Simulated scan of single mutants.
Amino acid sequence: MDINKKRTPKREEAQMVPQPVRGEPGLVHVDTTWGIIQPLQVRENVRTVDEIEIGEFQEKGLPIIDARTSGFYEVSTIPGAKNIPHDEITDRMDELDRDQPSIFFCNGPQCPQSPTAIHNLLEAGYPPEKMLYYRGGMHDWVTLGLPVVKNT
């Protein structure tokens, strides 16, 4: 059975990124109804990473790619992330550092934007060993209380 059919029915207005509860530091609202659950491994030879590895990339100044559309990026993102939307990724492949692997993320485990970017890059001939997938995305990043930056 499709795991997505077991989920709570979708709300009319999705809230894809957990939002702070006013006056309650460390507490966020999470919408569990949107999207389609993505696999843990997006493609063969593309390794899935966690928050600890993102922290290491941040410390070393290595590439972290926010594959969400620019409207999401402008509201908030992981510090140090560069926005290359999934629907522009193949046109902007020259902006990727082929000497270092890049971590790709989107809104979370139910978001298809970074998996789409990775699939498109693979089809365009980009090497899988130069891509890492952070499946947790903004959903897990925010719910773990990690910092975000606003780009507005």
Rank of each mutant, 00 (worst) to 15 (best):
Q41V: 11
V42W: 11
L27G: 00
I3W: 15
E12V: 10
R92G: 02
V148M: 03
I118C: 04
L121Q: 06
D94W: 09
K6M: 15
R22N: 02
S102N: 06
K130E: 05
P101N: 08
G108P: 04
P18R: 11
M93K: 14
K130W: 11
A124K: 11
Q110T: 15
N120K: 13
V28K: 04
K10M: 14
G80R: 02
G35P: 01
L144D: 06
V149D: 02
D87M: 06
P9S: 13
K130S: 05
F57Q: 01
M93D: 03
T48L: 08
S114T: 03
P79Q: 07
E24Q: 10
D94I: 03
E13S: 15
Q58M: 07
G137D: 08
T69R: 15
T33N: 07
P25M: 06
V46N: 08
R47K: 15
V49H: 14
Y134L: 01
L121P: 01
R92E: 12
N120M: 09
R98K: 06
Q15I: 14
V148K: 00
V142I: 12
V17G: 08
R98S: 06
G80H: 03
G35D: 09
F57A: 01
E129C: 03
L121H: 09
K6S: 13
Q19P: 01
M93H: 05
D140N: 03
L132E: 04
R11G: 09
K150D: 05
I118T: 01
G136H: 08
H29A: 06
D99M: 05
P20A: 13
E53Q: 14
